[in-house]
């Protein structure tokens, strides 16, 4: 758990990068710091491992004030991933991944075991990659190594500064999915900086939207999209925020709430989608008119119904208005 208590960062008396920021990152959750450039999100992240000093307030990590610890010791307890992956070209993959365990003085056996475990986590063969150098790997592989390097000493807290920002869109999505899979297993408390709205919606348990060093809204992605607190939040997520919010829901969610349509066996031109597909992609597929009927299949590949634009619209209405009425009552 990371708690920010009235954290302020001033570079000079006029230039304030972060103003009275007060929030908590719950244990095992991903909080994405989002905002336009210069909003203070990276500064805020770097204050956690004291790469930036704190002018006022305090940051408490698992009941320990970050200022009470030695900076070196503190940093070794926090996983750190940066955009360009920051792998050291003079070290092999194994040396790169095992840097923090090495600094902590782990023995060889423990390091080898941990390396094997981590490489399996990202689906790379430890035997093959052990002796390779970073430049022999693709950008996506390098970034995966960057992520497991931060996990190496099993720190409870991780800081990720636009970790997937330098990757091309296809690889980025793939690595995001993989990372979420890993997170389900390792359950770290993660602070994640991004400037990409779609990435934030996908990765975050909660999003913190910042402007000029101040919190604009701190909420779950769906709450942020369906109920923006002010004009800035509204504008930042854009006119298509309703469509964006669809990426938070799957066909299965829709099926559970309003059910699927009957299949029309007389239509030949059909396409199938998996029930776990998100609704945003599903809607795109429907709008693209790729087929006359879109059939939904379950995990066993069995056809369980069809989906239409009308159904998606109905679901969206339920999601936004439904929640609104609940919050009014509450």
């Amino acid at each position: 758990m990371i708690t920010f208590n009235q954290v302020t960062k001033k570079y000079s008396s006029e230039k304030t990068a972060v103003k009275n920021v007060d929030f908590t990152v719950d244990e095992g959750k991903i909080v994405v710091l989002l905002g336009p450039s210069g909003c203070g999100k990276t500064t805020l992240l770097r204050m956690v491992n004291r790469l930036e000093s704190i002018t006022e307030g305090s940051i408490v990590i698992d009941d320990e004030d970050s200022m009470d610890l030695d900076a070196i010791e503190l940093r070794r307890k926090i996983g750190y991933v940066i955009q360009s992956n920051g792998l050291f070209p003079n070290m092999t993959i194994e040396e790169n991944v095992m840097i923090v365990p090495d600094l902590l003085g782990w023995n060889k056996k423990k390091k080898t075991e941990r390396f094997t475990y981590l490489m399996k986590l990202i689906g790379l063969d430890p035997k093959i990659y052990k002796k390779r150098y970073p430049h022999e790997l693709s950008g996506g592989q390098q970034q995966r190594i960057g992520v497991v390097r931060a996990l190496a000493a099993d720190p409870p807290v991780m800081l990720m500064d636009e970790p997937f920002g330098a990757l091309d869109p296809i690889i980025r999505e793939k690595i995001q999915d993989e990372f979420l899979q890993i997170q389900r297993e390792v359950k770290k408390t993660i602070l994640f900086v991004s400037h990409d709205i779609d990435e934030a919606i996908k990765m975050a348990d909660k999003i913190m939207l910042l402007r000029d060093g101040e919190i604009m809204q701190y909420d779950t992605p769906s709450e942020m999209l369906t109920h923006p607190k002010n004009d800035f939040v509204n504008q930042f997520f854009g006119k298509d925020r309703a469509i964006k919010s669809l990426s938070l829901h799957t066909v299965k969610d829709l099926q559970e709430v309003i059910g699927l349509a009957e299949m029309d066996e007389s239509i030949y031109d059909t396409k199938t989608i998996n029930v776990n597909q998100d609704l945003r992609n599903t809607l795109s597929m429907l709008l693209n008119q790729e087929a006359d009927q879109v059939i939904v299949t379950n995990d066993e590949g069995k056809r369980i119904g069809s989906i239409t634009i009308d159904l998606v619209q109905k679901y969206l209405h339920f999601e936004i208005k439904g929640k609104l009425s609940v919050s009014q009552e509450g």
Partner: peptide, 12 residues
């Protein structure tokens, strides 16, 4: 960035 990573990981 390499230097930043080194410091951020807790190298003296």
């Amino acid at each position: 960035e390499m230097r930043d990573a080194a410091i951020g990981m807790g190298m003296k």
